[in-house]
């Protein structure tokens, strides 16, 4: 393997060593990739909501509304991040079962998973989950409904700011809507491996 390392680096060196003019790193604005077609001025939560809905996400403004939604569709058994338990538990009635650990032996037991999100991106309608703040990768992925919780001041304007915010967390995921595929005849189906319903709850 070490031989391969030396050999590859040698070949790379030889391949580019003789180039007379190497292309310089171009100069460009950080936000070049941010669309100029739609404004990002205004209330970031409102902009986020509009974009999140556009990717079939479901923004929810109060815990009451979230509980009502879960109840309406019969999603009564779920996981809740222990750190959120205290603030959210009072909104659930006795018809619900909330677990504070996620049992990987029986992942289909959970109809929903409530976790903390690190941020949300207004430009793209994405929620950001991280290893340090999101209590369980599986709980945010395996149940049919994922509820990512953020606070208003955690909403980031655009992907440039979100990249700058990546920090040193070893695992950051931008989630832009429910899991989906169009592999079969180009027909859109949601809920492939991950959630079919992606909710963002404003704390």
């Amino acid at each position: 393997m070490n031989n391969d390392r030396e050999a590859i680096l040698k070949r790379v060196g030889e391949a580019v060593g003789g180039l007379a003019d190497r292309t310089p790193y171009p100069s460009f604005r950080n936000d070049l990739g941010v669309s100029t077609a739609r404004s990002l001025d205004g209330d970031l939560w409102e902009i986020f909501c509009e974009r999140f809905v556009a990717v079939n996400g479901m923004p929810v403004e109060t815990p009451d509304a979230m509980v009502e939604y879960l109840k309406t569709f019969g999603y009564t058994h779920g996981y809740c991040d222990p750190a959120l338990r205290e603030s959210l538990a009072p909104f659930f009635d006795s018809g619900f079962t909330l677990e504070e650990s996620f049992d990987r032996q029986d992942i289909d037991r959970y109809q929903f998973g409530i976790t903390r999100a690190h941020a949300a991106i207004a430009e793209t309608g994405s929620v950001v989950v991280t290893d340090r703040l999101t209590s369980s990768r599986l709980a945010a992925l395996a149940p049919w409904v994922h509820i990512a919780c953020i606070t208003r001041d955690e909403i980031i304007r655009d992907t440039v700011a979100a990249v700058a915010d990546l920090g040193d967390d070893p695992n950051v995921v931008w989630i832009t809507g429910p899991s989906k595929t169009a592999d079969v005849e180009g027909i859109l189906i949601e809920g492939v491996h991950g959630p079919g319903i992606q909710i963002c709850l404003l704390l």
């Binding site: 430009e123 994405s126 340090r132 070893p170 695992n171 950051v172 995921v173 989630i175 832009t176």
Partner: peptide
């Protein structure tokens, strides 16, 4: 799509 649904940034083993 403006972004694909899951954009993952991985820089090491789990935290």
């Amino acid at each position: 799509q403006q972004l694909t649904v899951y954009t993952e940034f991985i820089s090491g083993p789990r935290a």
